[in-house]
Amino acid sequence: MSDNHVNVGSASVQAIETVDITNKRVGLFVTCLVNTMRPTVGFAALDLLEQAGCNVEVPEHQSCCGQPAFNSGDDEGTRQIAYETIKQFEEFDYVVIPSGSCAGMIIKNFADLFEGQNEWQARAQALADKTYELLSFLVDVCNFVPQGVELEGTYTYHDSCSGYRSLGVYEQPRKMLSEVSGLEHKPLHGHSECCGFGGTFCVKYSDISDAIVEEKIENVLDTKVDYLLGGDMGCLMNMAGKLNREGHTEIKALHTAEVLADMATEILGDGHARK
């Protein structure tokens, strides 16, 4: 398939608005994978949002967007989780999530879950309307331009399916990464092709998932880059895990936020204040 960016047919690209965000309250939804597996991404998101002038808060009682239950078909379980998320985040002006997948869940699916429950459906829709994926929020809403970030090396970009197809995230991360000095982009063949993660899919159908990620990393290896970047921890963990299993330690998989917040050198997931 072509590496050229084709017009994303059905994706509704979020309206570009330029607003004064300094007096707006931004709630950061950390996501389960960032919370447990890679806290650095959460700190990077926090740092970037603050750099962009946002007044960021991290609600203590947050859990999961509900996708593991939703994608398993457990609608009632998903609703139970969604009630909590709505209650925790509806007071903010914006809700920002360092994952296209979790953001997409709230933006595209929450309201449909409450079909027939008018009040909750309205609240879910209101939350959906102010929820953003981190990288697109930084560019589209905050007009953020990273400054003074350096990283020596080459990178390639994996567009996660939910970010790319359901939210239209494509230009934003590339635009910000082009501001990082020393970092050079190499196009990835099949950049928007699924990596085989698919949430519960990758454990349910582990062998199919493996066949898919194997092909993905072949494409990644062909680019001979130092860094594999993306905007979703699920995809990144999947590809990084496969790269490591196959002994390809020369390529480091990182969340774009980690690079932009100058936290790319951290190997462990622990948070650190900006250097």
Binding site: N35, T36, M37, R38, P39, M237, L268, G269
Partner: peptide, 22 residues
Amino acid sequence: TSGWTRNRDLIEPGTQTFMQQY
């Protein structure tokens, strides 16, 4: 976690969750 680790490695988590550190 054999569904995951049968075919790929898992990254090591941080020493504590984001929320704890935060």
